[in-house]
Design a protein around this nucleic acid. Sequence first.
DNA 1: CGCAGATTTGAGATCTGTCAAGGGATGTGG
DNA 2: CCACATCCCTTGACAGATCTCAAATCTGCG
Lengths: 253, 253
Amino acid sequence: MSRQTALHVRLNALQFLGDRDFDVLAKLLRHVERAGAGELVVVENQELNRTRVLLSGWACRYKSFADGRRQILNLLLPGDVIGFYAIMLNRSDYGVETITPVDMAVFPAVDLVESLAGAPHLTLGLSWVAGQSERLLDEQITRIGRRNASERMAHLFVELFLRLRRSGFDHDAACCLPLTQSVLADALGMSHVHANRSFRALARERAVSIRDGKILLDDIARLARRARFDARYLEQSAVPERTKRAVKKQTML
Amino acid sequence: MSRQTALHVRLNALQFLGDRDFDVLAKLLRHVERAGAGELVVVENQELNRTRVLLSGWACRYKSFADGRRQILNLLLPGDVIGFYAIMLNRSDYGVETITPVDMAVFPAVDLVESLAGAPHLTLGLSWVAGQSERLLDEQITRIGRRNASERMAHLFVELFLRLRRSGFDHDAACCLPLTQSVLADALGMSHVHANRSFRALARERAVSIRDGKILLDDIARLARRARFDARYLEQSAVPERTKRAVKKQTML
DNA sequence: CGCAGATTTGAGATCTGTCAAGGGATGTGG
DNA sequence: CCACATCCCTTGACAGATCTCAAATCTGCG
């Protein structure tokens, strides 16, 4: 059961986990569920006691308003974790909806307590994944708060491209995004009309295009320039030596 | 050393930690540093290997652009943790700057490994704090993405009020915010001119005012109505029973 | 007093939202 | 095959929100 999921790719890149950690992880991810496109996975303001790991397909995490507007907080790609904090919070104040058909590993959040107790490397590995996703939220805030519409869109495209790359997708696959312009609008905090205009602007510059209902990123470099993209927030920096030593000492006790 | 810091108040509200957990916490928070207003605590893109807990005073976490614009990601209040993930990330891609003079407990991030190893309740308590702060980021995204200027401002005011309340401040103290309108503008993703106009609009409605350079929240109820504030994302829900049981079982092994 | 920083206001330019409508693709049922 | 519905993309026109530039006022402080 050492199937290379996107989460494995990310954790492997850390060069920090051992065989036993991956065994524990495999046990957690044993049970897989499948869902179609546009299905609700987590309902806003309802009890949440399961943790999921997206194995394939896309989803989004969002908050919605009484009048129907919604804001997508986060696009979820293979290798992303849903409901990591569900151990301590019994309600989710966000919803999760699939964008494409997906495969997800599902397990009771509380299983993390037992599984991680004997696996300090995996514990830190997963909390590193959680930290990475928090940095994505940071960047989502600056994207929406301090960039205009077409910069926002270009910036998001580059981020998605790089996130896919680091999860093991090759260049071409990472250039093909299964997003409608309405989803883009919800993710970027703008109206779908304006999302379309911004998209058209990028398309006129030959940076993007549409084929078969998918968005194609034709010129990543141009998009990155357009958005003044600074990739540092996505870097997979190595685990500090001092951390490795400290964990090793714990393991030996 | 059972001084009731704001972090203690928050963790106590969980009714989950025992005396030993608080002992471990006290040891972590032993060393206290002090900084004046407007000082840099964490520098963007520099090494970060310390974790801090804000004991008194205000600070903000931000990202800045080459042209001088900046986006505040998060306002940091007493009881908030800075650099929780510094164990695994050796660089911070955000800066932290004080707004008022502050007291902070400071310790090497790596100490968390050893301290938390024998304190599963504290571990979960702190990860619950981390989860709460992630929910604040979620709300910051919807605030900026889907609300207009004066709603944003009213919404932030109510959030700050409630966060102060839950950290042990009384009603009057929680109504007094040491923020300039430029800081507000950076936090809300708007220009300082527009921040002023929005503030004036709220002041005309007698919802807020200024005295001695501080912002006074004169009518919380009106602000909450104005922002259609939904407090659920700030609720301190109890720790699920199943989690308590699972942790107890671990502790006994 | 004089300076620096914060607040305030006006005017005009720019960006973005809303409303409205049309086109294209796809799928369903007759 | 056609009629019809649905969903997504696209565009125009106009209204409204927000930004930028500029300048005046105010406040605390040395």
